[in-house]
């Protein structure tokens, strides 16, 4: 059974349609990277999952519980870290995480262990007893994430959890997310940092204008929408080598390209193979009018 099952979801704010016929599923242990430009509907989708916005059409179930019919029961399965940091600044980091564990129903005798493990995973041990108001933005964001994960919910919604954090913090967050997924948590991870999606080996759903523009694994998307370019450097008699760029279907085309040089082969002094990044795929799919005709 999918932990999160979204079927034909449409959400509108007045006349503005924020989501249109969106469907997706997340299985236990799966990480779904939710990508899309600003205003694509990523946050609206997460808010709909916790019942904070009412869908105009479609259905959402969490662990088999229909969110519209039983929002409270469904929310019991969800940990949600919104994009905006939501912490209690006058409490310490430990108090924030401990109180949230208690509010989310972690049994009292398990709270110490759960809090300590979560603080440690997010590198918060040394600052655990400082009031959150005295912490840096990145540290506050880690406390914010820790509050969402401490109860080890079956479904975790993380909305841009690494905005404005340093590389070390980003690595800690990503490692924590990976560990949670390995332990069976289903994770919906919204981000603009595409390398994070690659690092998490996440399945990708790319939203654009409130609809699913494309979906698939990172490698699959690179194959479908990316391109490979082979740069050949050819020696010239009286000048610097010139570069010939050949766009090919993939690296496997290299022998054919090299053989195609014919009598110039002996003048080949170097070559590079350049593959599209996920960023380029993202730009290409999102850009208006450039969605390939075979896009699913």
């Amino acid at each position: 059974m999918a932990v999160l099952d979204v079927r034909d979801l449409s959400v509108a704010y007045g006349d503005h349609v924020a989501l249109r016929d969106v469907s997706l599923r997340i299985e236990p242990g799966q990480i779904l990277g939710l990508l899309g430009p600003n205003g694509a509907g990523k946050t609206t989708l997460m808010n709909a999952v916790v019942g904070a916005v009412r869908p105009r059409a479609g259905a959402i179930s969490v662990c088999g519980v229909d969110v519209a019919a039983h929002p409270r029961r469904a929310r019991a399965y969800v940990g949600y870290a919104e994009q905006e940091i939501a912490v209690f600044p006058t409490l310490t980091a430990r108090e924030n995480v401990r109180d949230w564990a208690a509010i989310c129903g972690v049994p009292r005798r398990q709270q110490d262990e759960a809090v300590a493990a979560t603080l440690s995973a997010l590198l918060l041990d040394r600052i655990a007893d400082r009031q959150v108001r005295t912490l840096s933005g990145g540290q506050r964001r880690r406390v914010h994430c820790a509050m969402a994960t401490v109860a080890r919910p079956p479904l975790l919604l993380l909305d841009e959890p690494t905005v404005g954090v340093d590389p070390g913090t980003r690595r800690a967050v990503l490692e924590h997310v990976r560990e949670l997924a390995d332990a069976g948590t289903a994770i919906c991870y919204s981000t603009h940092y595409l390398p994070e999606v690659e690092a998490l080996q996440a399945e990708v759903v790319l939203l654009a204008d409130g609809t699913v523009a494309t979906r698939g694994g990172v490698a699959d998307l690179l194959d479908r929408y990316g391109s490979t370019v082979i740069d050949l450097r050819i020696a010239e008699q009286d000048s610097d080598p010139r570069t010939i760029s050949v766009k090919v279907a993939g690296p496997h085309a290299l022998p054919a390209v090299v053989q195609g040089l014919g009598t110039d082969l002996h003048r080949l002094v170097g070559l590079d193979i350049r593959r599209s990044s996920l960023d380029e795929v993202f730009d290409r799919v999102v850009a208006a009018g450039e969605v390939p005709a075979d896009a699913p």
Partner: peptide, 14 residues
């Protein structure tokens, strides 16, 4: 102001 109202609302607490 702390955004914790919405955080509370996303839990199972009525």
């Amino acid at each position: 102001g702390w955004n914790t109202w919405n955080r509370h609302r996303a839990t199972a607490v009525p």
